[in-house]
Every structure is written in structure tokens, then in C-alpha cells.
Design a protein around this nucleic acid. Structure first.
Lengths: 197, 197
DNA sequence: AGGCCCAGACTAACCGGTCGGTATGTATCT
DNA sequence: AGATACATACCGACCGGTTAGTCTGGGCCT
């Protein structure tokens, strides 16, 4: 057996990250001790600090992963060869589905920002801002084209929608009556309906 | 000088609660030490543990205050003698203004739920649920009356709106271009527009 | 004189991070 | 093909520092 996959087949760094993600979402960053993380991953502190510089680094990795995935998916929808209405709806619904499918990530994302070191916090904010602006551009494009109402500033529209996405981790339960896709359709629908001229 | 108002004119318990609120919002519950709270309030631990049973109690007080104020205000708008559209719009806009005027409370509310003890957490959730249901009743009333679209379940509509309220503490800055009232008008507008039949 | 209010020293638990050391794999040379 | 030399992966004991909460004592008001 190779050392790096001792136990199951998953490499140690990924096991650590997975364990940390679950625990951070479950009890919060500060309430999760490094000892608990390494125990959940089936290794010891030595292994953790071999792969990660600090507990903070572990949290930063969660953010980096989420941001990368979201940016990629948004780009795919925004760049599609479709009318603006469809592109915005697609992107708006997709971010809902993706968020629900990774509720732990969402929980951590909005709850633990202030636990990042100042420079990492700044970096995450910058990346997040780029994402926001990309999304806003879609709204503005529709407004310019006369397809969406200009009654509300595009910035606010984006924050309105992402507020509801943010909120998902608070109320959505996998054992509830609605599937992720159904929730996504409804929320995208609300957005598009609010934007009707 | 009376002992309970040593320093300025504010009673010690309120000074402690105010200091705790500010610090919890600023650095988070876990990152705020009891020592910092008592120093900010100009007293010592003896005073804090004379009035509050635990650090957790202090946090619970913040939640109790927010919930009480919000419930009262919602009741006032919901019970007014106005058409349903006006009542919902009034309530929706008011919660935005109130939230912005107490951004620290909002920050704490959604970020620190999991720091409450299990039974207090349960209590807060129950109270929160009552608030949600009161708000949902307004939406349903409008839907029944045919004034609002039935395309989206009322529950989801409420969560959509409160998502954006929740999100305010993340992006709203008092030195930004929009006044609290302007933001409230826009967000209430988006809600009502989404509900157009 | 007795009770409310509070100061401040103290404690027991815990936490993130470090460090010396070990085991296993790989590259190179003979 | 075997030996030597080094790199990588990981263990687990340990340390300095911090924390929430306790306790004893004293001052001020009624």
C-alpha cells in the first residue's frame, strides 16, 4: 500500500480537506480543533502540517475551490450562444443547484469569511467581486437590450439574487419537499419575473 | 454617582450588551473574549457574571432583542388597515431599513446561530419560524385574493426576500451611494414586481 | 447592618503549532 | 544487482499562550 492513500484510496490532503469542510460547516471554524480534523481524516497533526501551512490555509482552500467552480460554471452559461434571458436564467438556476449540492461549502463561505487572515480575506473578496461583476454584466446587457426593466440598479438585482442563494444554507433541507432543481427553477423564475419590463 | 451607571449614564447591563454586540459583529463570537467585552464596557468580569449567566447568555440576549423588535414591527404593518399590496410592501421595506440601521445585529444573527447552546438555538429557531409564518401569511393572502401570482410557493417567496435581507450585512456600507430607505424601496419593489400576476 | 454590586486574582482545560525522529520510496553509481 | 544517498510522508509528544468561568473580599446604599 502506498503511504499517501493509507486506509482508503483517497490521498491524505484530500481526506483532510474533506474532513475539514464537513467539520467547519457542522461546528464552525473556531469550534473545530485541528485535532478533530486529523482524527476524522485518520491521520495526525504531522500529516496536516506537512501539506498545509496552517489551519487558516485549510479554510482558504475551501474558498478557493468554491470560487473556482462557480466562476467556471458562470463563464460557461454567460458565454453560451443564447438570448440574454436564457443565459441569465441558466446561470441563476445553476448557481442554486450547485450551492444546494454543496451546502457545506455555502455554509462555510458566508459564515467564516472573517476567520481568514486579512490578506487571504482580501484575495477572496477580490475574486468574489469579479464573479459578482460578471453576473451583473448579464443583467446590464439585458437592461440595455430592453429585455429587462431598468427600474432597479443591476448591482442591487445581483445582490438580491445572491442573497437568496446565500440564504439556502439556512433553510434548505435535502429531505424537504423540493428537489434542488425545483428550488432553482423557482428562484430563477422570481428573478426573471422581477426583471420583466 | 450611582454604581450602576458608573462612567456614563447608561446602566451596566446595557453597556455590556452594547459592547458585546459591537464586538461580536466585528470579530465574531469565538474571537471575542469575555475580557475584551468587559474592558469595552468599562467594568470587570465580576460585573458581567453578576448580570449574565454566561457568555452564551449575552449572545442569546442579542437574538431576543432582534426577534422582539422585528416581530413587533411586522405585526404593526401586517395589521394595518390597508390593501394587501401596501401592507406587504410596507413590511418588506421596513425590515430592510431596520436591518440596515442595526447591521451589527444582522451580522450576528445569521453568523452566530450555531454558537448558541442547543436549547437556546431551538428557542430562537421557533421564534424565527413564527416570524416567517406571519410574513408568509401576507403573501398567501395576496395570492388568494388574486393580487399576487401563485407561480411560486409562498414559503419560497418569503425565503427569497429574507435572503436578500440576510445578505445586506455582507454588502451594504453606510458610506455607499444608497440610503437605507432607497435600498428598502428597491428591494420591496423587486419583491412586488416578482409577485405581479 | 445587611444586601446588592462589583473588583480582580486564580484555575483548569484546551488549542494551534513545532520539532525530533522514523519509515518508505526513488535516483545514482558501481 | 546491490549499495549508498537523499527526499518524501508521516508520527506523537510537547510548549507557550489563551479562555471561560469561579471565588473571595470589599465598598456603597438603604
Amino acid at each position: 500500500m502506498a503511504r499517501t492513500t493509507d486506509g482508503d484510496g483517497t490521498p491524505v490532503p484530500q481526506r483532510l480537506l474533506a474532513a475539514a469542510t464537513r467539520l467547519f460547516a457542522e461546528r464552525g471554524y473556531d469550534r473545530t480543533s485541528v485535532q478533530e480534523i486529523v482524527e476524522a481524516a485518520g491521520v495526525t497533526k504531522g500529516a496536516l502540517y506537512h501539506y498545509f501551512g496552517s489551519k487558516d490555509d485549510l479554510l482558504h482552500e475551501v474558498y478557493a475551490r468554491v470560487l473556482r467552480v462557480q466562476q467556471e460554471r458562470l463563464d460557461a452559461f454567460a458565454g453560451a450562444d443564447e438570448p440574454i434571458e436564457k443565459r441569465l436564467r441558466g446561470a441563476a438556476a445553476d448557481v442554486v443547484v450547485t450551492t444546494i449540492e454543496n451546502l457545506d461549502d455555502a455554509m462555510i463561505f458566508f459564515r467564516s469569511m472573517h476567520h481568514l487572515s486579512p490578506e487571504k480575506n482580501k484575495q477572496v473578496r477580490a475574486e468574489r467581486r469579479r464573479y459578482h461583476e460578471r453576473f451583473r454584466a448579464l443583467v446590464e446587457e439585458g437592461q440595455e437590450a430592453g429585455v429587462f426593466s431598468k427600474a432597479t440598479p443591476a448591482d442591487l438585482v445581483v445582490d438580491y439574487h445572491f442573497g437568496s442563494v446565500h440564504h439556502l444554507s439556512t433553510w434548505y433541507r435535502p429531505d424537504g419537499p423540493l428537489t434542488p432543481q425545483q428550488v432553482a427553477d423557482h428562484l430563477a423564475d422570481l428573478l426573471l419575473r422581477a426583471l420583466r419590463p
